[in-house]
Design a protein around this nucleic acid. Structure first.
Lengths: 211, 211
DNA sequence: GGAGATACGCTACGACCTGTAGCGAAAGGC
DNA sequence: GCCTTTCGCTACAGGTCGTAGCGTATCTCC
């Protein structure tokens, strides 16, 4: 796994305790809920997990990487059921994402680790691999499904298709995060309906002129 | 100003040094560029500014509020010149915003203070007043200008108009931030053209069906 | 020109967090 | 059983936070 500092794949010696792994990640989420990002300390997490502080440092180099791993699993919940139309699919996944951002552990941690990643390339890569890519797959799946339904034209230029996928991803994820954390307003059904209508309309207009 | 802890509006006693104010804010930006958010310390800033550490604490309660004030002035640069069309206006302001986010001091600080604000209501209010509202005005101005040109229908329902303004703001600001800081890809002219085309198309489609 | 009030620089301090080192004991593979 | 690695524990140096206390400087009001 990418979650832990590589123990050299050694087949010899005492193996790492998986109970400790899960206890630490669980304790990290609990500490995030209770203390928030800035007041969370490694010593506190160790205490909650019933583990020595040195055990944490054997697995994660610092607080940033620990928190990324602790939060990443929550993004496994995101799914994209087929609801029959592009707009319905978008609304559903946005509401899911919003519910995730409402949780105090993600709310306080997500922006913080992204902020740290602006000066920490390995951390950025870790975030991309364990969180961002997991979301991006939903955009790809939604677009392909819409094409199969005929809601969007079949792609001709794969480069343009990739660019549009990237754009839609940044727009959706960015808008939801900004609404929830910066504007601090609810990501509720009416707002989501407006957002998805804007996107579907914009994509339709672009397709009409041959984008 | 909202930038400093209120000295009780006292007309008596030695007044606070405005040179110290500007020196501190300037030192804070320099420290952000050089050290980034997480390694920036109050003592370091004080040293750079040629000021005692206690002088910082007389003005700002903590690092968060100091950094917000230090970065806020950069957002004064944002302007909305009339370029003749809604799409051109959007593209111009987005590129301005992107250039601001490219600066290392905003890049490292903006997400960090927003993350802190999820657990600090006064800080959120400070961010809203000194940064967010300053950006939001541009959306209002751009929408009104587009209505005067006839690119968008004159508003009938003011509630719906406000909701659309909020939506567009979160979409634009969120998408740019997400592209720049999470996806870590360049906010360049081609991308901005795609974004603004999506928005203009979406707004047009919404207007066509009577939103 | 005092008197009062406030800001300033400086030093010192306790409390806390970080990340590492060293120890003996535990738990696996060969 | 031997080797290797992890475990919990303790201790530690280094750094930061935020405050207190001091004497000095600067401004307003009388």
């Amino acid at each position: 796994m990418c979650s832990r500092t590589n123990p050299r794949n050694s087949r010899t010696g005492r193996p790492r305790s998986t109970e400790a792994d899960t206890a630490i990640l669980e304790a990290t989420r609990a500490a995030l809920v209770e203390l928030g990002w800035s007041k969370l300390t490694m010593g506190d997490v160790a205490g909650r997990a019933g583990v020595a502080k040195t055990t944490l440092y054997r697995r994660w180099a610092n607080k940033n990487e620990l928190v990324v791993d602790a939060v990443a699993v929550l993004f496994d919940e995101l799914e994209l059921p087929d609801l029959g139309s592009l707009q319905a699919d978008i609304e559903h996944v946005v509401l899911q994402f919003a519910a995730l951002l409402e949780r105090p552990e993600t709310k306080t941690a997500l922006m913080a680790v992204v902020a740290e990643s602006t000066r920490d390339e390995p951390l950025r890569e870790r975030i991309r691999a364990s969180i961002v890519d997991r979301q991006k797959r939903l955009v790809l799946a939604g677009r392909e499904r819409a094409q199969q339904r005929g809601e969007l034209p079949a792609h001709r230029d794969p480069v343009a298709t990739d660019a549009t996928d990237d754009l839609i991803f940044d727009v959706i994820a960015g808008a939801v995060v900004h609404r929830a954390l910066v504007s601090a307003e609810p990501v509720d059904a009416p707002w989501v309906a407006r957002l998805s209508a804007l996107l579907v309309g914009g994509l339709g207009a672009a397709a009409a002129v041959g984008g």
